[in-house]
Amino acid sequence: MTTNPAFELVVRRHGTAVLRMCTALLGPGPDAQDAWGETFLAALRAYPSLAVGANLEAWLITIAKRKAIDILRSNHPVPTEELPETVVLPEGLGQLELLESLASLSELQRKVIGYHYLLGFPYADIPAYLGGNPASLRRAAADGIKALRSQHQEAEEES
C-alpha cells in the first residue's frame, strides 16, 4: 500500500515554494514567516487525512495563500483622528513605472508571470492554480513580458 511521504520530507521539499508564495503576498519579513509557519501547522493537522498521491505543492500553496490573506485582513489600517503630516511610502515603490506597466496587463498575464518568474513554478504546474493548460499560460506570460518590454522601450525613448 502506498502512503504519503513523511511530513518532514514534505516541509523540506516544498518549504521554499510556500515561503515564496507568502513573501509574494506579504512582502519579506515577519508576516511572511508567520504565514509560512501557520501554513505548515495547518497542513500538519490535515496531513493524516490527505488523499494518497495528492499534489502536495498545490495543496500547500493553497493553504499558504489563505493564511497570507488572513494576515492581510488582520493588518487592516486603524482609523485615526488626524492624518500624519508627512506621507511615508513603503520601501520598493521607487519604480512606479513598472507598477503601472504591470497594472496594464491582464489579470491572467500578471498571475502567470508571478507564478513563473517570481515563484519559480514551471508552466506545467501552473494550471493547478489558475486553470487552463501550460501552452496557453506560456503564451499569456510571453504576451505580458512582450508588453512590459515594449512599454519599457517606449519610456526609454521618451527620456
Rank of each mutant, 00 (worst) to 15 (best):
A68C: 09
L96F: 08
L89Y: 12
P84M: 07
E85W: 06
H76Y: 08
S49F: 06
A54Q: 07
E97R: 12
H76N: 07
E57I: 05
T80L: 12
E38P: 00
I63T: 00
E100I: 03
N75A: 14
V87L: 14
L89G: 02
A43S: 04
A64E: 10
G37R: 12
S104I: 00
L96S: 03
A54Y: 03
P90V: 05
S74Y: 00
A51G: 08
D70L: 04
L50Y: 03
V88R: 09
A42Q: 14
L56D: 01
L99E: 06
E97M: 09
V52G: 05
I71T: 13
T80W: 06
T39D: 06
D70G: 04
P48E: 12
T80Y: 06
G94M: 08
E97T: 09
A68I: 03
L89W: 14
P84C: 11
T39P: 06
L56Q: 14
V78T: 15
I61R: 12
L41A: 09
A42N: 07
A51I: 07
L41M: 12
F40D: 01
T39Q: 07
S74V: 00
A54W: 00
L93I: 07
P90N: 06
V87R: 11
L41E: 12
V52A: 13
H76Q: 15
G37K: 06
V52D: 09
E81L: 15
V52P: 02
R66M: 04
L50I: 03
S101K: 10
A54F: 00
L50S: 04
G53F: 03
H76S: 13
I63Q: 04
E100G: 07
R45Y: 05
L41N: 12
W59Y: 14
N75H: 15
A42T: 14
E91P: 12
A58Y: 05
L98K: 00
R73C: 11
A58Q: 08
L89C: 05
S74A: 13
L44G: 12
P84E: 06
L93E: 01
A51Q: 14
L89R: 08
I69T: 11
E57R: 15
L72T: 10
P77C: 08
L44H: 14
L83F: 07
P48Q: 10
P79I: 11
V88N: 02
L96M: 15
A43Y: 05
L98C: 03
G92P: 02
T62S: 06
G94W: 01
L83Y: 09
L98R: 11
L56S: 00
T86L: 15
W36L: 08
A64R: 02
S101W: 10
I63V: 15
R66F: 01
V52R: 13
I61Q: 05
T62G: 15
S104A: 13
F40K: 01
S74P: 02
E85K: 03
G94H: 09
I63M: 09
E82D: 11
I63G: 01
R73S: 10
S104E: 14
E97I: 04
G92E: 03
P48N: 11
S104P: 00
S49T: 14
E100R: 13
V78Q: 14
V88Y: 08
R66I: 06
R45W: 00
L41G: 01
L98V: 09
H76I: 11
A43R: 04
